[in-house]
Design a protein around this nucleic acid. Structure first.
Lengths: 343, 343
DNA sequence: TTGAAAGCGCTAACAG
DNA sequence: CTGTTAGCGCTTTCAA
């Protein structure tokens, strides 16, 4: 069933059918009804491929993510989808596992599909210069609007939606200091990325502003995206070496999970033996009612914002780069509210 | 940059370029190199739309899911993606939120895109007969191979990947009985679906086989997909009414989370005051080291299997329907290993 | 081994 | 308001 068949059945030309299915207004109401009747009777849906070929562009956007099996990206995707549902667009999802080769392939796929725009959390920041350049080039080659999510990429002019990493980390660290702690530790991952650098610098800045000395032995930085396993093991090691700080800033939800798993297993009481503030809420801590303070950022909102930004850049070409910073609000648990903790 | 440009640049015809990029063997090696050089120089990638139009089919599959913001579906998607990476296919993701209207729209989209196959966890089972028929019809109309995931749809002949719900629930319930409990409760959701019915009937069968009487007041059935919130509130109510059973079967991970949130909040000790076995592992309970037994099913494997089944049905038309049942293995926590607990 | 030509299903001027 | 005519960028006979 194609437009030609419908045209024949309705006794009109292909153009007229095309006009009807595209809601053109220059069609006689009677003809329109005639065509519509046939269209509905045969449940005709024009081929997106043919349409795209002849009219340029196929209303598909590409979403590139490390994985979807992570609360953060799951929620981001959910947000994107909400906006997508109100639009005419469809999404192609590509999960890269932070593997540059997979990402390059995904990018090829998106170019081949002639997507209208790209939403991406790229692994470029983790690669060596050469590979990163390849990825950037591959994105550039698609020649469509791009909105980065969560991870900025240096030396590019793409739009992006990020979190307020610096202020978030600063507020969290300040809160720990205000609560009276002096030996503040930290676990921060993704150090090659701006988000890692920013969280780290927010942390350090707070320490400095309160005239404390950072304790290098309490600060754990990771070059890759952290895994709960790694953090768990490292924390166990620290506990055994008795070198856990009094208070600690946990760089993200994955770190939080690994860290809590270790301390709970070893019988260390959070909110008493140790005080933590993490970046991102962890569902777990809600369920078990264990003291935990965290920086709340609306992940779904990040997805929505990114998608809206993309839609906007479809409408108005806009020469300026847009960056949205999603705030990270401090949610203090009872055990930490001794002092004023806003920054 | 299109095939015509490349042809001109390489001094050959479009057909020859087409042959080269499609790895046809009837091309002179010298010509092939000539063409390849230009293709690489200009980084030419043929348009999937044009290709699809002229050769039928565009190597895209559709994935329909309630949402991706749920550990189960996140892992399923991850599994699908793994297989996808080894294939030539790309996926369009549609999240429906179990809303039949959104699902119908998603199905339209997939038909418009002329996808080659469909992977779906449909909400048809939750709709009234009329809507369900519409959805089934819409899927049927796409006329491509379909593999259902987790939720079977009655009266259809589509392939599917499901869990061993009946045996899982049976094993879980038996284990509780073998451990010495007589008053076994249950929380089971999705009752309109086979998966709900099966979990319920496995539960009941175990009760009967052990010559116990089911206690209706301890059995909580839900018609919709459960939300943690609902289960949490209901559990709180039960605790206040002092009508919690000694042991309980929790129908899925969402239920588990809601249930545990309530009992932990109220100071009821799992593994002591109450014994639970849940369908699906909950990351949470791993982290907090709280007694919990569960039925482990490999969600990622479900995704992989579904995708493989789809690929297979592309290759061999196969007149027979294939259904894969992913096992649910009992993982008993220490507090429940008093008796032999296999079934 | 190669090229010419037709056509995939649609849109978009351009006439009428 | 409607139909005719050209493509969109590719694949695929069919000849040569």
């Amino acid at each position: 069933m194609n437009i030609k068949d419908i045209a024949a059945l309705a006794g009109v030309s292909k153009s007229t059918v095309s006009r009807v299915i595209n809601h053109a207004d220059n069609v006689d109401e009677k003809t329109r009804q005639q065509v519509l009747k046939v269209v509905e009777e045969y449940d005709f849906l024009p081929s997106a491929m043919a349409r795209g070929l002849s009219s340029k562009g196929n209303n598909v956007i590409g979403l590139i993510l490390p994985d979807v099996d992570n609360a953060f990206f799951g929620q981001v995707t959910q947000g994107i989808n909400e906006v997508l549902l109100d639009s005419q667009y469809t999404m192609i999802l590509c999960c890269t596992g932070n593997n540059p080769d997979y990402e390059l392939r995904a990018l090829q796929t998106l170019r081949q599909q002639r997507v209208k725009g790209i939403l991406a959390t790229t692994s470029a920041g983790f690669c060596n210069v050469k590979e990163a350049a390849k990825i950037k080039q591959a994105i550039e080659n698609i020649s469509v609007p791009v909105v980065l999510i969560d991870r900025a990429v240096k030396g590019t002019t793409w739009n992006g939606v990020y979190s307020d990493n610096t202020n978030g980390a600063y507020a969290a660290t300040s809160a720990l200091i205000e609560a009276g702690f002096r030996e503040i530790g930290a676990f921060i991952s993704d150090m090659p990325l701006s988000l890692g650098q920013e969280r780290y610098s927010g942390f350090l800045q707070a320490i400095k502003d309160y005239r404390l000395e950072p304790k290098p032995e309490l600060i754990h930085l990771y070059d890759s995206p952290a895994s709960s396993q790694v953090i768990y093991k490292e924390t166990c090691r620290l506990i055994e070496a008795n070198s856990l700080p009094e208070a600690v800033f946990l760089g993200n939800n994955i770190i939080t999970n690994g860290f809590y798993k270790a301390i709970l297993e070893k019988g260390i009481a959070p909110g008493k033996d140790i005080h933590c503030i993490g970046f991102d809420y962890s569902e777990i801590l809600d369920i078990i009612h264990i003291p935990f303070s965290y920086l709340e950022r609306n992940c779904k909102l990040m997805g929505q914002t990114a998608m809206k930004l993309l839609l906007k850049s479809f409408e108005e070409p806009s020469a300026v780069r847009e960056e949205c910073i999603i705030p990270a609000a401090l949610r203090l648990d009872g055990s930490l509210t001794r002092g004023p903790a806003r920054s």
